[in-house]
Every structure is written in structure tokens, then in C-alpha cells.
Amino acid sequence: MSAALPADLRKLWEFMRSVAGDDAYERYLERHARTHPELPPLTPAEFFADEQERKWSGVSRCC
């Protein structure tokens, strides 16, 4: 139990980060390194600026 708890908490934390979008930049870097490592990646600030512009340009909320 005591050994399993930190692992579970960690999983929960990862899940929350994932739902909130906190890990988006890490996922982007990982994918970027895999697909076109020859290009320099965006900085965190540039990446989030782009992401916010994209996310709120379509229907993202209902009534």
C-alpha cells in the first residue's frame, strides 16, 4: 500500500497535467525530435502562444 501510493499519486498528477494541457510542450518536443530533428523547436512561450490562438479559433464551448 505504502509503496503503491506514490506511484498512484504520480499517475493521478500526470493525468491531471494531461487533462489541463500542462504536458503539451513536452509531448510536442518529443514528437518534434522524432519527426524533424533537423529544425530548431519552438520555445515554450512561442508554442503556447500558437496553441492558444489555434484552440480558441473554432467551436470549443457549447451552451
Binding site: F15, S18, V19, R27, Y28, R31, H32, T35, E51, R54, S60, R61, C62, C63
Partner: peptide, 27 residues
């Protein structure tokens, strides 16, 4: 079409959370 942006294969609970948050409004 995975582009790491809008097309991203996502864990189903995360996708559920996003979808529910998007559809549930004041209505």
C-alpha cells in the same frame, strides 16, 4: 494525421474530460 497539435491520439479519459468540458455549458 497526427501533427502534435489538433490531431493527437489521446488517452480516452483525457479525451472524455475535454469533450465533457466542451459540451457542458450553462444550458
Amino acid at each position: 494525421f497526427n501533427n502534435g497539435r489538433d490531431f493527437v491520439p489521446t488517452n480516452k479519459w483525457v479525451a472524455f474530460g475535454h469533450h465533457f468540458a466542451a459540451i457542458a455549458g450553462p444550458g
